[in-house]
Design a protein around this nucleic acid. Sequence first.
DNA 1: CTGAAAGCGCTAACAG
DNA 2: CTGTTAGCGCTTTCAG
Lengths: 351, 351
Amino acid sequence: MSDKPVTIYDIAQLVNASAATVSRVLSNSNYPVSSEMSKKIKEAAKQLNYTPNMLGRQLKKNNSMSIGVIIPSISNPFYADVVLGIEEIARQSGYQVLLCNAHQNPKLEAEYLQTLLEKQVKGVIISSISQRRGWLKPYLNRGVSIISIDQRIESRQVVQIGFDYRHGAYLACSHLIQRGHRRIAFISAALNRSSRQHIHQGYQDAMQEAGITPLKAWIQISEDCEDTKYCSTFEFNNGKQLAHHLIAMPIQERPTAILSCNDLTAAGAIKELKEQGIDVPGQMSVIGFDNIELSEMLTPSLTTVNLPKYELGTLACRTLMNLLNGDHVGEREMMLPPEVIERDSVVTRLE
Amino acid sequence: MSDKPVTIYDIAQLVNASAATVSRVLSNSNYPVSSEMSKKIKEAAKQLNYTPNMLGRQLKKNNSMSIGVIIPSISNPFYADVVLGIEEIARQSGYQVLLCNAHQNPKLEAEYLQTLLEKQVKGVIISSISQRRGWLKPYLNRGVSIISIDQRIESRQVVQIGFDYRHGAYLACSHLIQRGHRRIAFISAALNRSSRQHIHQGYQDAMQEAGITPLKAWIQISEDCEDTKYCSTFEFNNGKQLAHHLIAMPIQERPTAILSCNDLTAAGAIKELKEQGIDVPGQMSVIGFDNIELSEMLTPSLTTVNLPKYELGTLACRTLMNLLNGDHVGEREMMLPPEVIERDSVVTRLE
DNA sequence: CTGAAAGCGCTAACAG
DNA sequence: CTGTTAGCGCTTTCAG
């Protein structure tokens, strides 16, 4: 059934030309070939059902036309959007994306990076969770272009593209303050990622600016548990638990609003509050972070901070393409602006 | 900085051996090489920071060690889970996954398939939306192994792995009937996919078995609109709209329960019902389909039909690996069993 | 046990 | 405009 795959030599033979000429025609080289010959070759290719073997071309040209993407997990809707953006640009530029889910595991990250290099990718977009300084050094020295997205990496050599988490949290918290809230809680998973640290900072900044000193108990940050794999459910349950702590507080000290480090955690908090008979937003306002699609499906729909995730993907990929083309890349650090999206989970407090 | 990449020849030179010997050592061939030589070579490789060029190996061995995956969109959480399963098995088997988002576009599907073949994948896992019979024929004839997941394809030559949607819907509908519901609505996007057709069938079967003839108005199926790209929001809004039609019915005819073709649509329906002051599940029970993570985050949390998505991914990939190894693959059609997950959106009707 | 040589499919000088 | 030739990095006969 399936004979030997047809190569340019088969075509060359059929039309009495050399492989070189066939190659010139079929690889859209701008080398001059008579239009007559060209036509014959194209027809023969079609007739033989020729499919070029890119491995051959790529080996010769030393250019794999693929880029690598390493993210914590594609089942995180946040990254799904980013990847969509990356893939769109990559496809337009003729590149293939090699996607790797590193499951928050630094070892897997390194392993994947190695594999990608062996596959001859010239560029990698990575959202690394690894805190180990300089672990990318040896790879950079081999001439790979690396773009770090979302999570900041300690390195001056890689282009960094992310969101201004601090400012986003600042906006969110200010949003609450403007609406009359003063007892504002902050809930988050462990601050073991730069994004969460910055969100925390933005919260502190906004509070300080308003002259509010948050009570210790308003700041609920859960324990670091390295071993758990990421999943939405984890974040959600985390939110439930942290909200539970909050409502255990005496009513005079209890916050009237919650700023959450992400929408999933906010969703958990809302669920817990409702289960405990606390009206959202009537008795407690909640603001999220990320603006994943879930947020408008909740009841009440979630006021949150939008991060342009798809745009992060396109920008990262476009920047990488520029790097690969040797074009000059302007900034080594780019920040995409967050923005508060008003929905129904925040209410103005009259007092 | 980045000199010419180091090859086996560089290593051979360094240790006074031939490239052949180096290759035998570094590619873990079981060809006999003196342990002394072997050690020297390994050390030299490490010292030179050697990274094998897989393009060379793969061209020679005619084996790209990668598989293709074509899905509608990674931003559909359903597929995110499936892909996670595929990738896990692929990685374990040393394969790389080339992921392609076809955006419900048959043209893109074909284009991607072509690209994958050029990249020399020997196998493809595809969830094709294309209704065109036999479009895969020409590819199959070239000896590619194709596994169709989730959506059925009209072809006897491809292995099909999916869910028993009909049975799932039958279970869901029966679940409602057992709880005293008789006026049961079915809401769905256009039945332009085999999955939705089967769900519809399962609904009909369960109703018939219970001796209930559904009113026309209970069956709300939205218009086909080919051009809209898939996104969660679309399904959600669809649910809102269809639920809206339902509550416009005179109260005596109005259903007491809704079976939705997926969780997203169910979420939209619930939202609309609540906005219209109809209590869920008090006045209207809702059952979903898919069991995406969203379903337990809603209020009330959604009773739904679980589909083992991750397992679909692992099974599909394992089966593909077997095909590629030439091992015998048992069934040409496999169905994974759905199962009702009871949560809080369905209530027993006393009457 | 080791090496020389051929060649996977394709492209790019170079020569005609 | 076309063909010849060499070679990308690697594996694999086939001889030693």
